[in-house]
């Protein structure tokens, strides 16, 4: 067992967990933060993406014990006092989500992209989103939403 202390969405969290606990499992099963989804077992789909110390990572491929002391932002913690992040707003406006399952990971991945690139081109957006599989939207409206969010940030 390991004691892991993290700051998740601004809240201090400390738990005794099994060593093998993945971050996705800590979030979903132990902390009931079920907005982070698990869509595959090969680290490909990206539904589980969260920010660890500001960088997007796949929480299904990360031991919680490995990031002891880190700051984590999940989809539940992105909106600020009820005000949606620009990418959340833009996805709604551009119909960049359908079933919503890939959306949390997609959003968190885009947040990281927009930190790194102010005005990404279509191709830069599409390349960045390689790690997030969406089966519903065909990505087109997601790309449009990312561009709009970039312009508003």
């Amino acid at each position: 067992m390991q004691r892991v202390s993290l700051v998740i969405n601004g809240n201090k969290v400390s738990r005794e967990i099994e060593d093998r606990t993945l971050l996705s499992s800590l979030l979903r099963d132990i902390l009931s933060l079920t907005g982070t989804h698990v869509g595959c077992d090969t680290s490909q789909c990206g539904a589980c993406v969260v920010l660890v110390d500001g960088k997007s990572v796949k929480s299904c491929t990360l031991f919680a014990a490995d990031i002891d002391g880190s700051k984590i932002i999940t989809i539940e913690g992105l909106a600020n006092n009820g005000k949606l992040h620009p990418i959340q707003e833009a996805l709604k406006k551009h119909h960049g989500l359908q079933c919503g399952f890939c959306t949390p990971g997609m959003v968190m991945s885009v947040v990281d992209l927009l930190k790194n690139k102010k005005n990404p081109s279509d191709q830069e957006i599409r390349d960045w989103l390689k790690g997030n599989i969406c089966r519903c939207t065909g990505y087109q409206n997601i790309v449009a939403a990312v561009k709009e969010a970039a312009s508003k940030m």
């Binding site: 979903r28 933060l33 079920t34 907005g35 982070t36 989804h37 698990v38 999940t74 989809i75 539940e76 992105l78 909106a79 949606l84 959340q88 996805l91 709604k92 406006k93 119909h95 989500l97 919503g100 399952f101 959306t103 949390p104 959003v107």
Partner: peptide, 18 residues
């Protein structure tokens, strides 16, 4: 705009596994 979007965008969707 879709009525269902807000829950999905804020991680409040409730899927079976949740």
């Amino acid at each position: 705009e879709r009525k269902e979007d807000k829950k999905f965008l804020t991680g409040k969707g409730r899927y079976t596994a949740d």
